[in-house]
Simulated assay, not measured.
Amino acid sequence: MRVLAIDSSGMTATVAVVEDTQTIAEYTVNFKKTHSQTLLPMIDTMGKMIELELKSIDAIAVAGGPGSFTGLRIGSATAKGLGLALEKPLIHVPTVDGLAYNLYGCQDIICPIMDARRKQVYTGMYTFARRELEGSKETEMVLDVLEAQNASPIDELIERLNIHGRPVVFLGDGVPVYQDVIREKMRVPFSFAPASANRQRAAVVGALGIQYYKEEKFETAMEHQPDYLRVSQAERERAEKERKAVVSIRQMKVEDAAAIAEMEHQTFSDAWSEKAILDTLRNPKTICLVAEKIGKIVGYCIVYTADDEADIARIAVLKESRRFGVASELIHALDVICWENQIQIIMLDVRVSNDDARAFYEKHGFTQDGIRENYYKNPIEDAILMSRAVIPTKK
């Protein structure tokens, strides 16, 4: 079997062509250059050196994360593009597993650490166990995952390693960043891997990828997605900005229907279609509100009215925006509209199993009126009926 291997998960950019019993070629650069500038030229140069016909490869192994967000995106995009063009499967090799495999045969705890900033590392714990081959005196070393790859504060990682009580070998780009902390706080014997084996290597990703392929652990190029483990710095900053932003409530518009339908499918098992939402908007006996933060819809509420009663049919908030008062603002805005329109009672129903929703409504003064058996479908479940009087309020 012949595999093209790619790893751009860290500062190191590395590509290789690996077969079952040998590495045909490997090109590795650990230098401050953007992987978008280097990765494809490296593959091209390596291919020319060994007269590689890309169609001759059987699969593409790619370090699928965690790691640098930009590096992972470039590596994954390169692998996906080649996989689609060549119609070859992709083998997703976890980055930290690949790093550990550098130390093939080591029976101490192997602890890769990649600097994830903010005193955190991408890490895992591994060792190699000896396994006898059936009907032979020959043995092989098998990678044993003691702790799957994760993002962890360096202090907590060290404490877990101390609890294990076994000698540890560290490797990865987190070593130069945290070696002083390691030397200060480790209470068990430890060492650092040599320069020849302490960074990502595509040949190792390829060798491990071949094992995974034989175990049928592969995917189509279209299916492949990198494993970030944490959101990017830009995404964290955007989320923090959204969290602090003021919630604004407005009437739902026709052009909001597509976004609301998407939130429906993310929230409810009996999601309303875009057409159903548009039909509801056209109904003069409805109150349809959306909550926005920085121009982004983060929640909505759909209410049917009849005489002096209002019945909440739908209320939902984006998962990442929950527990920041969005639903409370929607309820408050509904009270204002109901009071202005001389509506006296607000009613709703909630699944028996939805403890969080029940607690939210009780916090806002709703009390239980009764049970409606087998009201909900998919899955079948009883509904708790709740209501309260409209709270007199002004805008």
Rank of each mutant, 00 (worst) to 15 (best):
I163C: 03
P284G: 08
L82F: 15
P226Y: 03
V326Y: 04
E216K: 10
D227L: 08
M42P: 14
I297E: 01
A25I: 15
K293E: 11
P153E: 02
I158Q: 01
T14L: 09
T220H: 02
H224Y: 15
T286D: 02
L143K: 08
K88F: 03
V390R: 05
A239Q: 13
Y104A: 07
E264C: 10
G172L: 10
E381H: 15
D382W: 06
E184S: 14
Q22G: 07
G124F: 03
W339S: 08
R236T: 00
R243Y: 02
R236V: 00
I260L: 14
M252L: 09
H265L: 10
I154F: 00
I331Y: 07
L157H: 01
I312S: 02
T267H: 13
S321V: 03
S353D: 13
V231T: 05
L171G: 02
M263L: 15
R201W: 11
K137L: 11
F170W: 04
R314G: 10
R351Q: 15
A257C: 05
I391E: 09
W272E: 01
V205M: 15
D279S: 11
V254F: 11
A271W: 06
R199I: 09
E223P: 06
I343Q: 05
A61G: 12
D256T: 09
I113N: 06
C301T: 06
A16F: 08
A63T: 01
V336S: 02
V303T: 05
D7W: 07
A357V: 12
I345E: 12
E147N: 04
S56E: 14
S68L: 06
V93Y: 10
G172A: 13
F324Q: 03
M347K: 12
N354I: 10
I260V: 15
R131N: 02
Q266E: 12
V303E: 00
N150P: 02
V62N: 09
H35I: 14
D155N: 03
I249A: 03
G105Q: 08
H265Y: 05
E362K: 15
L99Y: 13
Q344C: 05
R131Y: 01
T23R: 09
R323Y: 14
S269K: 13
P226T: 04
E309R: 13
Y126F: 13
D7S: 11
G67L: 01
I337E: 11
A327F: 08
K217G: 04
K253H: 06
V231W: 00
L334A: 06
Q251N: 11
N162L: 15
C338K: 02
G295Q: 11
I210W: 12
